[in-house]
Nucleic acid binder design. Structure first.
Lengths: 125, 125
DNA sequence: TTCTCATCTGAACGGATGTTCATGCGTTCA
DNA sequence: TGAACGCATGAACATCCGTTCAGATGAGAA
């Protein structure tokens, strides 16, 4: 903490601005807190190898929990927990047929997100 | 844990497959472990409101650490830690001019990722 | 050189998160 | 109706992660 004048500021930077014009320009374009938080939550949910594999698979085929479990070699419980997380962020949706739950991606933005992401990381391998 | 035959499997599903064709089809298309892990790391880094704001800002203007700190109202130390994380995932790059470090996005995939992500979440607000 | 400034870094603390285990719920079939 | 099955869920535990604090580094000014 640095004390300046009467108020205590979280010691960001002592000087006022390096380039006030650029800062103001970006500030105007900045997204709302709700949008930023929602996007952060979405990325956080996708920040897990199992959930990425699940989303990738569901982008190609409609699958039931058991199929996903077999496909990835992950316990059914873990798959179900992952699916719930994906569901809460509206990344996947499902329909029930008897006792079987079939999952798919909720919309194509997610598929694009994955494609764009893979394109980025595959450039660096 | 369930024991089946000689090998112990993580009790995924007792039956073999619900739809073997779909599972095999997805399995063939599945990305490598390295790509999946790298993408998960990338999303994990982006799964934080501060780092999203930073990336969003750097997609529009080249900024120094002090500007970012002022722009977001976050301590300079926190910004620096976030930038290091973004740097390690090759999401941003920087150049030094005297004692000032100017940061920008590393490539446009990241900008597209953010745009696509915002498009997704803004549909749900 | 010495001081100031912009930035970086490691350690440490508290909260969030992933995984597993055990169990509960709803459906199907004998 | 009761057993088997597919799936969902809560609790508990260990681990990861974000933030802050204190100090270090390196460049420019005095």
């Amino acid at each position: 903490m640095a004390t300046r004048g009467t108020q205590t500021v979280s010691d960001a930077c002592e000087i006022e601005f390096i380039d006030e014009r650029k800062v103001k320009s970006v500030r105007r374009a900045m997204k709302s807190d709700e949008a930023v938080s929602a996007l952060a939550e979405t990325f956080k949910i996708l920040g897990d190898p199992t959930r990425i594999r699940i989303a990738f698979a569901l982008a190609r085929e409609e699958l039931c929990v058991c199929d996903i479990s077999n496909l990835l070699g992950v316990s059914q419980s873990a798959v179900s927990h992952s699916l719930r997380a994906l569901r809460q962020m509206k990344l996947v949706r499902f329909r029930k047929e008897g006792k079987i739950a079939y999952y798919t991606l909720d919309d194509e933005h997610i598929a694009h997100l994955l494609d764009e992401g893979f394109r980025h990381v595959e450039e660096l391998l």
